[in-house]
């Protein structure tokens, strides 16, 4: 990886993050509607309105408000929640662990499930195993995470009576218990994305298996198995890295929704319940942090992509 590429990619990251912050700021400040008015209601007295304007910094001109907000973000000052009257940072940190653990667990499941499925399908192209994976992944993609979550509760808790649906265990209480209560939610988040990745690996592998170097490997007397594992798979995995990067945003989005299904006290629950309270500082902080996290993940994936494929030099 050349230093020049690294610098260029880093600059685009900065540009993206700045644009992300402007978009997030604009969404809450430029769109019609006065947050103070929404918070207080239409019949609010002018004095109260002015006081809240000053408290939210709404009396400053737009560019100044943006700078105040961004410099606060950089210092780790996310403002004060209107609903809880507490610093936003403190509110987020206790919820973050749930969402992060759920997302990582789901990501691990996606890897463990999708890679073997994609391999099996590609190695048995056109045969029953391939068709089964093709059908199964189509179904997997057709059931969105929150719906799969509900169906899992139906099957495991109501019909099989295994786990009680609303039993959240904090990691400080019991780490194994915490992870156990995240398994079903993680499955719900993981299945639709695992289906996408498996299908992508299958077609990527089939592309590679039709190429000249695999034919050469076979003609030299390699078994089909060896040709796949030693030659085709490595190259087929390169584009899969990109797809996994794009999946990151979907995993986080899926986690936010699935928390609601399983009653998990994560960022998603906080976000959705804050909307009813018009807690603008809280929502704005969550939105910008998630978006920056996604931009960062995509940046790292791009670097990884260059690292695993020495042919790509731009």
């Amino acid at each position: 990886m050349s230093a020049q590429y690294l610098i260029r990619r880093f600059l685009t990251l900065i540009v993206t993050v700045v644009l992300v912050s402007i978009l997030a700021f604009a969404a809450f400040n430029v769109l019609p509607g006065d947050p103070a008015l929404t918070i207080l209601g239409v019949e609010a007295s002018p004095e109260k309105l002015a006081a809240l304007h000053a408290r939210l910094g709404l009396d400053l001109p737009l560019p100044e408000r943006y700078l105040v907000w961004v410099s606060g973000l950089l210092r780790g000052d996310l403002g004060t929640s209107i609903r809880f009257s507490q610093p936003v940072a403190a509110l987020l940190s206790s919820r973050l662990e749930v969402t992060l653990a759920l997302s990582f667990l789901a990501f691990a499941m996606i890897l463990v499930v999708s890679l073997p499925l994609g391999l099996i399908a590609a190695r048995n192209r056109g045969r029953p195993w391939d068709l089964a994976v093709g059908l199964g992944t189509q179904l997997g993609m057709a059931i969105p995470p929150f719906l799969l979550g509900i169906l899992l509760i139906l099957v495991f808790s109501v019909i099989l009576r295994w786990a009680s649906p609303a039993a959240y265990v904090s990691p400080r209480e019991s780490l194994p218990g915490f992870l156990a209560c995240l398994i079903l939610p993680a499955v719900a988040v993981a299945v639709p994305k695992a289906a996408v990745v498996a299908r992508f690996l299958r077609s990527s592998l089939l592309d590679q298996m039709g190429s000249d170097y695999v034919r050469t490997a076979l003609s030299k007397g390699n078994t089909a198995k060896r040709a796949v594992y030693r030659h085709a798979l490595k190259n087929a995995l390169i584009p899969v890295v990109t797809v996994l990067g794009v999946t990151a945003a979907d995993i986080i989005a899926g986690s936010l929704v699935v928390e609601q299904v399983f009653n998990l006290p994560g960022l998603g629950r906080l976000l959705v319940s804050s909307i009813g309270y018009r807690d603008f500082p809280l929502i704005q902080a969550m939105v910008i942090y998630i978006a920056v996290a996604v931009a960062l993940i995509n940046f790292l994936v791009d670097l990884l992509y260059r690292a695993v494929d020495p042919r790509i030099r731009l």
Binding site: L19, L23, A27, F28, A249, I275, F280, A291, V294, A295
Partner: peptide
């Protein structure tokens, strides 16, 4: 670059923002 920045907001989040602001 603008599209990249928009893509960094997970879809549901973008919708959440619009609904928060506009109702």
């Amino acid at each position: 670059r603008l599209m990249d920045a928009m893509m960094a907001f997970p879809g549901i989040l973008l919708a959440l923002v619009v609904v928060t602001v506009l109702g």
